[in-house]
């Protein structure tokens, strides 16, 4: 039993080590020519633009729900005027970045894992290499970069959709005007709420891209392996995001004590 657990732990640590090496290599290779900017742009389109409907819809729904909760708690203190600000702070500081990260790891992580996995088992990755293309740069680095670029932008989009959702929920109760709501939402936000929280999603993007690409590149055993790469990349990327978020939040508090 203990041996089994020990083996599992060792396997996990080994896995983390390999993924880290993979990610580190991606960061190094990203600066080497050719920069593959076309492919990065293509992936930003796939990862960013195509995620917008999901992000907007989820952000809106989360905004509505958060607004109802904030209302329930702030109403007790007679602080209804703080509802937009409370919602915005919750959204911008934590809910937006984390949810956007998890959603993207679901949508894109699975996609990348499956796509690269399929390319691996059908020898397309070898075919890229045979055409003198650095498959690691062309497939992994571009996707990792695209995730790192897209996620902060998607997070911002999510924050705004959440505020709009909050507005809709709030105006249904109080009939507050959009601009007043919008103004109040930002009334208590500071740069230190917005910028670090949004930029930390660059790290989330890095994790999603790295884990999914790694699992895609190491896919074996045909179609079954492809499915496994896809689900694993969602699960592992989500867990890593949640775990690293704890560290990042702590780190942000260290630099911006509030």
């Amino acid at each position: 039993m203990i041996e089994r657990v020990g083996l599992l732990v060792a396997a996990f640590l080994g896995w983390i080590g390999e993924v880290s090496v993979f990610g580190g290599r991606a960061l190094r290779e990203a600066w080497r020519r050719p920069l593959e900017l076309d492919e990065v742009a293509r992936q930003v389109f796939e990862i960013g633009w195509r995620s917008i409907p999901l992000i907007v819809a989820s952000g809106f729904a989360i905004g509505v729900v958060l607004s109802l909760h904030t209302r329930a708690s702030l109403e007790r203190f007679g602080a209804e005027a703080m509802i937009p600000a409370g919602l915005a702070i919750a959204l911008v500081r934590e809910t937006g970045p984390l949810t956007a990260g998890l959603l993207l790891s679901g949508r894109v992580g699975a996609g990348i894992g499956a796509e690269l996995g399929a390319m691996k088992v059908t020898e397309q990755i070898d075919a890229l290499e045979a055409t003198a293309v650095d498959s690691f740069k062309f497939l992994a680095v571009t996707r990792i970069l695209a995730c790192m670029i897209a996620l902060p932008l998607l997070t911002t989009v999510m924050d705004f959709s959440g505020i709009v959702g909050g507005y809709v929920a709030e105006t249904a109760v109080t009939g507050i005007s959009f601009w007043l709501y919008f103004d109040r939402a930002f009334s208590h936000l500071q740069f230190s709420d917005f910028i670090p929280a949004t930029l930390k999603t660059v790290v989330f993007g890095f994790i999603i891209g790295t884990v999914a690409s790694y699992l895609g590149f190491t896919t074996e055993r045909g179609t079954e392996g492809v499915g496994r790469a896809s689900t694993r990349s969602v699960v592992l990327a989500s867990i890593l995001i949640i775990a690293i978020n704890v560290v990042l939040v702590k780190l942000i508090f260290f630099f911006y004590p509030d």
Binding site: E115, A118, T122, E123, Q124, D126, A127, L128, A130
Partner: peptide, 11 residues
């Protein structure tokens, strides 16, 4: 290089 299974980029 022509791969045995062609290995076309299917996207």
């Amino acid at each position: 290089f022509l791969f045995q299974n062609a290995a076309l980029f299917d996207s």
